[in-house]
Design a protein around this nucleic acid. Structure first.
Lengths: 223, 223
DNA sequence: ACAAGTATGTTGTTTTAACAACGTTACCAG
DNA sequence: CTGGTAACGTTGTTAAAACAACATACTTGT
């Protein structure tokens, strides 16, 4: 990902490639590559740098004492992660950040972003504003997960999640960014029970699905 | 709440009372009172102003299609609410904000906070930084709720929640800010089932509780 | 094309929580 | 102190999901 692409990301929106280049050194940034499955940050770590995914995909996961994994979020190229903890540096991570595939990330020290430095002050404030917007959006993502896991039944959770995906895609046919196991983790249910419920819903004519593609069938929705 | 108290809040930290007074008009602020149970914002609203609780307490709730209520957060004096939606003004609210008791709130237009105005620019940037910190903290609160509702059993959720409260209070004896119904909503379980599990845990000697006071008994924890 | 590995679907059993209904306690106002 | 009300606890029944074990389908590298 070059400077032009970087400036197309939400965090650097409004910054020119030249300015971005100048800022990177000022912000004490560093790049790092990760293999599939490799841990980027671990539960208990305290961090001061936020991450920008340059390529690949990283998952934010919570692993409880008994080994059950909950996927909290899925972060792709141009998106950021760990900014919450980097903005509250005393809080230890309650999550693991792992590469879902071979990935590269850019790390920025939040302290350097928040406090103006002599040369590029003007752009810092832009970055802070972008960061605020992103934090608010991540906030909404967490709210949505809470929303989708509030129904007590698997069907209720599926309908909540799939309805939102349909609205988001603007149609009844869409592809989700999870495989069955990840979706089950996201919705906090058993994978096999999820499979069973999806089968039942297909037999009842509510939807059709193949792999991670879904089609919600009418009669049951007003979109 | 006067200017001195206001400047003691997280949002206005680092601002002097005189500066705060000057900013309020600049920020197009307004105050409003609410009766117990009164709606402050409703699901589906689009909002541009964040709220500061001046007195009382407001609850962030999600109410699904079948009327089940989930308490997402509880916001007290000096704390803010709706800042997430105010920072992403196109997103309609997925929650209700209601006064848990007679309350007063101050509303600030986020646009005015984010974009410097001629006279008080210096303090705007301070406010934006504070806002970012608060957004990150609210983020962590949502993460914690997700964390506490990840265990599949009621006991698991209780232990997760109560352990955190114990750590937070620095001891095995503490008071929680929820009654039974609110705790059940927060943990996404039935109130009566929660009661039953608490009774069982007491009989097993894991804890003692009376109303909203809890004492975790040793042997089961290392704090 | 094949084999190995991974993802998904199916079935039956066990565990757990939801639910409904009711009893008990604490609290408040008259 | 008493009647009313709201919070809390208890019980038994029912519905649902977890779990385990297995079958099938898809994908990938060679």
């Amino acid at each position: 990902m070059d400077m032009t692409e970087l400036c197309g990301t939400a965090l650097f929106r409004g910054v020119t490639p030249e300015e971005a280049q100048a800022m990177l050194s000022c912000l004490a940034s560093r790049r790092q590559s990760f293999a599939k499955g490799q841990a980027i940050y671990r539960t208990g770590d305290t961090v001061t740098a936020l991450g920008v995914v340059l390529s690949g995909r990283v998952l934010i996961e919570s692993c409880d004492l008994w080994g059950n994994v909950t996927v909290l979020d899925s972060v792709g190229p141009g998106q950021i992660f760990a900014e919450t903890y980097a903005c509250t540096p005393t809080e230890p991570l309650m999550v693991d950040v792992v590469a879902a595939e071979p990935s590269e990330a850019l790390f920025l020290e939040v302290e350097r972003v928040l406090h103006a430095c002599p040369n590029t002050c003007a752009h810092h404030s832009r970055l802070v504003r972008n960061l605020l917007t992103l934090s608010a959006q991540k906030n909404l993502n967490l709210s949505r997960k809470i929303f989708h896991t509030s129904p007590k039944t698997i069907r209720g959770r599926l309908l909540s999640y799939l309805s939102e995906q349909a609205v988001r895609s603007g149609g009844r046919s869409f592809t989700i960014p999870f495989d069955r196991q990840q979706l089950a983790d996201y919705l906090n249910v058993e994978r096999s029970a999820l499979s069973g419920e999806l089968g039942r819903m297909q037999r009842e004519g509510l939807l059709r699905t193949r792999r991670n593609h879904f089609e919600l069938l009418a009669d049951h929705l007003e979109l």
